Simulated assay, not measured.
Amino acid sequence: MKSHVIDSRYGGGKTRSMTTTTDHKELVQRALADLLGPGGVDAVAPLLSEDFLHHRPDATTSTKKEWLASVEAALVPLAGMRVEVLHLLADGGHVVVHSRRTHPSGVEITVVDLLRIEDGLITEVWEIIEPAAEAAAHLEWWQPAGR
């Protein structure tokens, strides 16, 4: 997944390794496919750094081991969930995934994940989830109650 570029700033045309934003996007796509595929958490675990952290909007943070355990526990109730990636954007060491996820029961959520990639591994994830049915109510969250 690494590309090599020649850069005269590094001593007369020496080759240096550089991970591109395309590589980062491919890593995230692979992680999502592996996670939702038959390999599950065992397939995605090698794509996460040992110091991996997962952050939620409620200010909770989980380690690699904690996050993998919680995802493994959720895979059975979420079996058959459809994930539609709406946007996949990369800039430097960060990738953003905007997706719509639909449970077989029909319940739909919108998810935005911001991932930090370092040394070819996913090192950190910030996740925001909004139930699609509640989206309209969240459009005016700043309005005082009763207005």
Score class of each variant (00 low, 15 high):
E72L: 04
H55C: 00
H55F: 04
L78E: 14
S62R: 13
A79W: 08
E84F: 08
R82P: 01
V83T: 14
R30I: 03
H55K: 04
D58I: 01
V41N: 12
P38D: 14
K64V: 00
D42G: 09
E66R: 09
F52M: 12
E50M: 00
S49K: 04
P46S: 01
V41E: 10
L32A: 08
P38W: 00
M81F: 00
A79P: 08
V83K: 11
E50F: 00
G80E: 04
H55M: 06
V41I: 10
S70E: 15
T61L: 09
K65W: 00
T61S: 14
T60V: 11
Q29T: 09
G39Y: 06
P57K: 10
P38R: 14
V28G: 03
E66D: 11
A69L: 07
D58V: 06
E50V: 07
W67P: 03
S62T: 15
F52C: 02
K64Y: 02
S62G: 12
E84T: 15
D42C: 10
E50A: 13
A31N: 10
L36R: 09
T61P: 05
A59W: 03
V41A: 03
A31P: 03
V76S: 13
S49C: 00
K65M: 13
L68V: 02
A31K: 06
D51P: 02
K64C: 02
L48D: 02
K64A: 03
G39E: 14
Q29L: 04
S62K: 08
W67S: 11
V28S: 01
P46I: 02
P38C: 06
A43N: 07
G39L: 07
D42Y: 09
S70K: 14
S62V: 08
L68G: 02
G37D: 03
V44Y: 07
R82W: 11
A45I: 05
V41H: 05
L47Y: 08
A69G: 08
L53N: 03
G40C: 08
A45R: 14
G37S: 08
L48E: 05
G40K: 09
P77R: 11
L47G: 11
A33T: 13
V44C: 03
L78M: 15
P38N: 15
Q29E: 11
A43P: 07
L47I: 06
R56N: 13
K64I: 00
V28H: 01
T60E: 14
S49I: 02
L32I: 12
R82V: 15
L48P: 05
F52S: 06
E84P: 09
A79F: 01
V76C: 01
L75N: 07
F52R: 05
M81R: 15
P38Y: 10
D58H: 06
V76K: 15
A31E: 13
A33D: 14
E50D: 14
E66N: 07
S70D: 14
V83F: 07
D51T: 04
V41W: 03
L75C: 11
A31W: 08
P77F: 02
P77E: 09
E72D: 15
A45K: 13
Q29A: 04
P57Q: 12
